[in-house]
Design a protein around this nucleic acid. Structure first.
Ligand SMILES: [Mn+2]
Ligand SMILES: [Mn+2]
Ligand SMILES: [Zn+2]
Ligand SMILES: [Zn+2]
Lengths: 148, 148
DNA sequence: ATTATTATGATAATAATATTCATTTTCAAT
DNA sequence: ATTGAAAATGAATATTATTATCATAATAAT
């Protein structure tokens, strides 16, 4: 989806919640929509401050929380103690594999896995709303050196 | 495995690391080995203090870290911001499904999923060392009331 | 028993996240 | 355009889980 499309969705979401549009929010959201990584708040704040020096951490934090709630951003935790956000993927849900040496992150989709998850849950009487699947290992570049 | 078996393994592990055996460590480990839940440090400390009031948080923390390193305990994070530990399962690795309403946790094993994970990783040039799979949803008891 | 090494536990430091609050901004009504 | 209630901002502070510090105590090899 294009930037302006996401902006419209955000505006609509704010309206339904009785929240107001502000220059800071728009700028933070716009900056985030342009990213294509799994960005931490610290990184996003730094990026935002380059153009708009007087935007505070709290506003970035609150804006990303809003984007998360609206579904425009997905919060991820890859075990390094920092929440990261990524843009809502075009092609639907995906999971991640993280290199334990160089921290490279690859994404994959596997419909069969998703289906088996639902089945496993069903057997236990659960219905699945969402899930977290992260694989940790070594990427092609790092596998040679140290597999421990 | 029985308590004394785990204790022996722990003793052996301590020895290889040049660490010493202490009454506190033994008591904390013993208390943990008797649990069959996913217990937080706070909960474990509370349990320990009932019998041994002057054991400190730091010792519980350090002992569980040791148990984790030795493979006798597995650290889990279910998204509530607290690390939880569970005993090394008898029957090998398992994954979890957590009820978003009552926090009930069910466990399951699915070899097919594990295999598909490895295959997905291989396609991306990764080798998998470990993984985290958590399903979030509603248990049988909670599904009726509020599926949102 | 001596003694070097490690453990303990109270306390403090970290670090990420969340909240407070005085001030500023938004926006609908006038 | 002005007003004013409601919400947002940002600096600072609070919270929370985790980790480190350090003086004292316990361990275990000699
Ligand atoms: Mn991703
Ligand atoms: Mn478990
Ligand atoms: Zn790598
Ligand atoms: Zn439930």
């Amino acid at each position: 989806m294009a930037q302006h499309g996401k902006m419209s969705i955000l505006k609509a979401y704010l309206e339904t919640k009785g929240l107001k549009s502000t220059a800071q929010r728009d700028f933070i959201a716009d900056t985030f929509f342009k990213t294509n990584t799994h960005i931490s708040l610290e990184e996003l704040l730094s990026k935002v401050k380059r153009k708009n020096k007087n935007i505070g951490y709290a506003t970035v934090y609150r804006t990303m929380k809003l984007l998360g709630e609206s579904g425009l951003a997905i919060a991820r935790q890859f075990g390094d103690g920092q929440t990261r956000y990524e843009n809502l993927p075009e092609d639907g849900h995906h999971d991640h594999i993280i290199c334990m040496k160089c921290s490279k992150i690859a994404e994959f989709q596997n419909q069969k896995i998703e289906q088996l998850q639902s089945e496993a849950a069903k057997k236990l009487g659960f219905t699945v709303v969402n899930h977290k699947l992260e694989l940790y290992g070594y990427c092609a570049g790092c596998a040679g050196g140290d597999k421990a």
